[in-house]
Amino acid sequence: MLSIDPKMLFRLDELEQDLVERRTWAVAEGWQGEIEGIDLTLTFLRGKRAQAQRFQRSGTVDLGLPHQRPPITDG
């Protein structure tokens, strides 16, 4: 799943503005399929923005270093 770098939130704002303008044009032209596609894309974009904003607030999580498990013995 694609993760957005919180530093790039401004780019999502630019993309959203462009999609809203395209949607306005599609409504004026009566392109129902295009409107539905843009609406779906806007929903995903806004979800990604919310995800990135949550990540930005919470920071990073230290998962530690992986370690090797001891071998399983019969006995």
Score class of each variant (00 low, 15 high):
1 M>K: 13
2 L>I: 06
3 S>Q: 13
3 S>L: 11
4 I>P: 03
7 K>D: 12
8 M>V: 05
9 L>C: 07
10 F>Y: 12
11 R>P: 02
12 L>Y: 08
14 E>V: 06
14 E>P: 00
15 L>Y: 09
17 Q>V: 03
19 L>Y: 08
20 V>K: 10
21 E>A: 13
21 E>K: 10
23 R>D: 02
24 T>G: 12
25 W>G: 03
26 A>H: 01
26 A>Q: 01
31 W>I: 01
31 W>D: 01
32 Q>K: 11
32 Q>S: 10
33 G>T: 12
34 E>K: 00
35 I>T: 05
36 E>D: 14
37 G>M: 09
37 G>K: 03
38 I>G: 02
41 T>V: 15
43 T>H: 15
43 T>Y: 11
44 F>I: 11
45 L>M: 08
45 L>R: 02
46 R>M: 03
46 R>I: 03
46 R>P: 01
47 G>E: 14
47 G>M: 12
48 K>P: 00
48 K>I: 12
48 K>C: 07
49 R>V: 14
51 Q>K: 15
51 Q>H: 10
53 Q>H: 05
54 R>C: 01
54 R>I: 05
56 Q>L: 09
58 S>M: 08
63 L>G: 15
65 L>V: 11
66 P>F: 04
67 H>D: 11
67 H>N: 08
70 P>Y: 01
71 P>C: 04
74 D>N: 08
75 G>L: 05
75 G>Q: 10
